[in-house]
Nucleic acid binder design. Structure first.
Lengths: 110, 110
DNA sequence: TTATTATATTGCAATATTACGATTAATAAA
DNA sequence: TTTATTAATCGTAATATTGCAATATAATAA
């Protein structure tokens, strides 16, 4: 049906997959990398930098904002988007619990 | 158009987003967690464990296998799926370059 | 050979995502 | 006020994803 059955999974599992989904598009990866690199940004820069149309970038920014990885302050006609470093660290904490599962002494069975 | 413009992004950016996409569904997160937990598995277990239909689980397993995070050995009528720990570590290395971008001395601009 | 069991594949419906042109909204500059 | 400038929103087309019933395949058991 194309609809993820969120209700049968734990909150942690949904949280992890939601974070991962935000990283699941190269444009959003590129946006985040660029924001880290220049440490301050307006949307126009990104349109040139990334190479997608302005509405498309705006849409990706909206998703990143929704999940809390970036925040935007209005600055005249433009908006200063930047990384929400506090949330970024929180996000990494959630992910690391999942990613570091292999740091147990168990060996492979096959 | 619904088609991601892969060609305008770097190989690293596409690699990161592809890994993230694999984690971008709670069922796949749950499957990986379960595989780590019991350290050996067959698909039937997962159908009960996760609560989705057998074809759906099979499809998710296929995607995880495609990206190399799990591997399956034929064992009689069943298949022993397990984590590909070598690739898991490689995957973490790729991701950490991206996730640890914030470990620079820069402050927030806004 | 004929079940039985376990998993994969196919086909399809429903929903989600991606991308962009056109438009709108809001501020700044003239 | 009029005219840029900048970014958000709307509408829509194309493609991807999710989920499952039905079926196929493959290996073992009877």
């Amino acid at each position: 049906m194309g609809l993820t059955k969120t209700e049968i999974f734990s909150e942690q599992q949904n949280q992890i997959s939601n974070i991962a989904k935000a990283f699941g598009h190269p444009a959003r990866v590129a946006i985040l990398q660029h924001l880290f690199k220049i440490n301050s940004c307006i949307c126009g820069d990104l349109v040139e930098e990334i190479g997608l149309a302005q509405p498309t970038i705006s849409q990706h920014l909206k998703e990143l904002k929704k999940i809390g990885l970036i925040k935007g302050n209005i600055e005249g006609t433009s908006i200063c988007y930047c990384i929400d470093r506090e949330n970024w660290v929180k996000m990494k904490t959630v992910l690391s619990v999942f990613l570091d599962q292999d740091l147990n002494e168990k060996a492979n069975c096959c």
